[in-house]
Design a binder for these strands. Structure first.
Lengths: 224, 224
DNA sequence: GATAAAATTCGACCACGTTCGACTTTTTAT
DNA sequence: ATAAAAAGTCGAACGTGGTCGAATTTTATC
């Protein structure tokens, strides 16, 4: 019976994650102690470190699961034949919602994903890679049906789009964009512009101009 | 004499920063304890918290000073009549060098700037704002001398460029870009494309294609 | 100059994340 | 079946960042 250990181990691991997530959601990440998690999971404090190297890792493990789920849900919701702009918007907004459902969770996750410490690089790249490939597929399909002019470089195109995704999250966390409506409007403009560079058409609009004006004041004003 | 306090206060503050920076550079941020900083600054542990609310804040105060200096140095080095692409590159690379001179410093700083906790928003916006305005000025000058077609929106243009700056740093910390040469080459391509969208011309190249190919493998490959 | 009020300093203290090594349970080898 | 090895468990102990209140120094008032 080689399996007794394996089975227990997975069960314990899951128990830790579940206890942790429940407590994190209740009281926040920083206000939840390792000891409380251990108690809630019915194990000793030190045992946790046999499963996770640090408190943060428990949280990231949970995020990985959540992201799996979110991507699956997205794939179901997304119409692979919709205009490329709409598909990208769906992807970005879904990421936005995930990240902002709990602000603290999202910040920790994004910090680890976008600016990982050297020990977290592999994890970061795995998560980023999934995202990047998601964007790539959308672009590839759009090219396949002629929506994008053929002469674009997939890597740099993805780069631009990924950059906008970072910009969106950063703007949200810095307070430049304050709600989903603003985020959506801003993304629409920026994505359209980026796609124009890639090889779709872009036109300005009216309500958007107003938002831009408003944001301009919020962003460019010097503080002193 | 109302000044005795003020003078001492500034001196102590500076002493803390200097001691902290020296120790951070010697042993790293996390390996340096508050008590060690206090000892090195010749004061008690608790006193530090009269000047800074958290360990991290000591470091950020130092960064602000450094950034002042870096921007001043940049303004001196930068040729305001050079092609817009070169000016942007100078700015981005200077940021890159600052941030990567000490990897750990840079990561902490960028995390605080790009994804601030709510208490750090003001600080984040102040630092970001400086950067954003720097980009804006470069664009404005370029437009003034006709290098950019007049019909671009300054805010979204800055958005795209700022996004690329985030992308660059994230790619470096995730290990996708591994040295300054790669960063420079990649930035050149992406900036040129972004500027084309804004209203300059862009053409591909040869050596760049090779790098892109190489990066594509590094970035898009699925891990399993 | 004396005294009250306010600001500042300090290290003992607290709670926490992480490490350690003694102990228990499971696996492997004979 | 049994012993040795390996893997896993545990809470005491350690070092840390941050708090607190008593003590000290500076400022304000007369």
């Amino acid at each position: 019976m080689r399996g007794i250990r394996e089975a227990k181990k997975q069960a314990t691991r899951q128990a830790i994650i579940e206890a942790a997530v429940r407590l994190f959601a209740e009281k926040g990440f920083e206000k939840t102690s390792i000891e409380q998690i251990a108690r809630a999971a019915g194990i000793g404090k030190g045992t946790i470190y046999g499963y996770f190297r640090a408190k943060e890792e428990i949280f990231l493990a949970f995020c990985e699961d959540e992201i799996d789920y979110a991507f699956a849900a997205l794939a179901e919701k997304n119409d692979p034949e919709a205009p490329v702009l709409e598909q990208l918007l769906t992807l970005f907004i879904s990421q936005f919602r995930f990240v902002t459902r709990n602000q603290e969770f999202g910040r920790l996750l994004m910090r680890e994903m976008a600016l990982p410490r050297s020990t977290g690089r592999a994890q970061s790249r795995e998560l980023n890679g999934r995202y990047v490939r998601g964007v790539g597929e959308i672009l590839e399909r759009a090219r396949g049906r002629g929506e994008l002019s053929g002469c674009f470089d997939p890597l740099t195109a993805i780069g631009h789009l990924y950059a906008l995704h970072l910009l969106m999250l950063s703007s949200w966390y810095s307070g430049y964009l304050q709600n989903e409506a603003e985020v959506t409007a801003m993304l629409r403009v920026l994505l359209r512009q980026a796609l124009a560079g890639i090889g779709a058409e872009a036109e300005p609009s009216r309500a958007e101009r107003e938002l831009l004006q408003q944001l301009q004041e919020r962003t460019l004003a010097a503080e002193h």
